[in-house]
Every structure is written in C-alpha cells, then in structure tokens.
Design a protein around this nucleic acid. Structure first.
Lengths: 125, 125
DNA sequence: CTGAATCCTATGGGATACTG
DNA sequence: CAGTATCCCATAGGATTCAG
C-alpha cells in the first residue's frame, strides 16, 4: 500500500530503550509541551498560546503521541463549547526531572558551544 | 539560489539555548557517537563498527557537527594509510553526565511506556 | 473550541561511486 | 583508510480547510 494509513498505526516498541524514548520526545515539540504542562493543566488553545509558534496540526499529533506513551492525560468535558484538558501523568512528571538536568546543562554550556562554532568557522579560513 | 550550498553553512546560534542544543544532539546518531567515544579514542572505521548500522555519510556529517560544536576533537595523523582519531572533549564528557540520567530514566521506565501504548491501543477498541 | 484531513515543502538519511 | 559527491526516498512539519 502506497497510501498513507489513515488511522496512524501505533509502533509499540523499538529495540533500544533509550532510542525508543528519545525518538518519541526528541522531536521539535514534545519537550516544549511537557514543560508547558509542568505547572499544571492546560487546554488545547492555552497550549497553543503558551508554546507560541506551533501549528494546530503538530500540537494535535504530538499530544496524541504523548498520551499514547503515558506522559499526559487527555480529559474531555462534553460541554458546549467543547473543553479538553491536558495534564502530566506521574510518568510525565518523573521524566521532567532528568530533563531539567539537561536543560541546566544546556544553559550553562550554551555559550561554550557558540564559541566553539565561531572558532571552528574561523579555523576553516 | 535553489542549489544546495556545497560547503554546508554553519548555523551559529538559535534563540532558545535548550532548543539549540537539542536540535544538534537530538538527531538519530549524535548521542550514539558520543557514547561510543565515552570509553576512549576511536578511529573512523572503528566507530562505524561500534555503532553498527550507521552509513559513512551520516557518520561523517555527524562527526563534523559534533566537532563544530566542541563536543569532540578530530586528530589527523598523515601516515599511509591515513589515520584519524576522534575523542571527546571535556565539554563532551560533561554532557554525558546529565545524559546518563536520561538513559537511566529510559531504562527504568521503558516498560511502563510500552505498557501505556498497549493500553492505549486496547482503549481504541 | 478541539481537532482531523489534505496538500505541499524542506530535511534526514540510505546507497553508491569516487577521491586523496 | 577516511572521507566527499550525487541521487533518491521517506518523513517532519507548516498552512489551510473541513467537521463534531
């Protein structure tokens, strides 16, 4: 079938655990979403505003992925107009801990990296 | 110019530090390479064997990126046949510390995630 | 309001052949 | 041995439109 599967299939598992996890949250948006939800529950449009430059498309897709993987919960309130709230699960919260270490590292060493790039560029004449 | 720039331009910096860092090492190979170099210096083909399923193309590109950003050094020994050795810099080593936390997290919670996927799949009837 | 479907482009990454 | 250049395909992601 060359056709794109309409209801996107769920890939259950990849060989390497770390790859499996990083492939999922290593995209452009997952991490941003998780951190946006760290302070507390948010609705779809609130997330849009919070993140700023994400498209509805990608927010929707990524939220679904994160829900699949158990990082967040999606709660539908069948009111009019519709209300949907997203929140971190305990798994999602626990993930942010090691992640904060990385964020801290990035903040600390960012200038070093930029400097390295400048130096490399200069060394290439 | 629609033509692809032959000598790939160096992007010096992106607005958000964490994005800037993650965009660079969030690809499919950077992390694997860094961890392969953790025990010590390796040559090009040794890295190929160590990583297993990477193409020369991607290994070459990614090594260059990592060198640019100051994570690794490239040392050329102009012998015959040519010998090139790659090694972590202090920056590269320091990066692996927070990264180990994440790897540990992934190992610990991998089964939970797979379980979540199964449950989600089931819940979709 | 909360998405799903469609269309389109840019990029990541593999395979292969060629060079110093 | 250590790459670079070229070709090609699959996927990420934006914009827009449609639906519940």
């Amino acid at each position: 079938m060359t056709a794109i599967t309409a209801s996107e299939e769920i890939v259950l598992e990849q060989p390497c655990p770390i790859r499996d996890v990083l492939d999922r949250i290593g995209d452009q948006w997952s991490l941003l979403i998780l951190e946006a939800l760290a302070p507390g529950t948010l609705r779809f449009n609130a997330l849009m505003r919070e993140i700023g430059d994400i498209s509805k498309q990608m927010l929707s897709r990524t939220l679904k992925q994160l829900e699949q993987d158990g990082f967040i919960t999606r709660t539908l309130y069948p009111e009019v107009p519709l209300r949907v709230e997203y929140a971190l699960t305990p798994l999602g919260h626990s993930f942010l801990e090691p992640m904060q270490q990385l964020v801290a590292w990035a903040d600390t060493h960012h200038r070093t990296i930029v400097a390295a790039r400048l130096q490399y560029q200069a060394s290439q004449t």
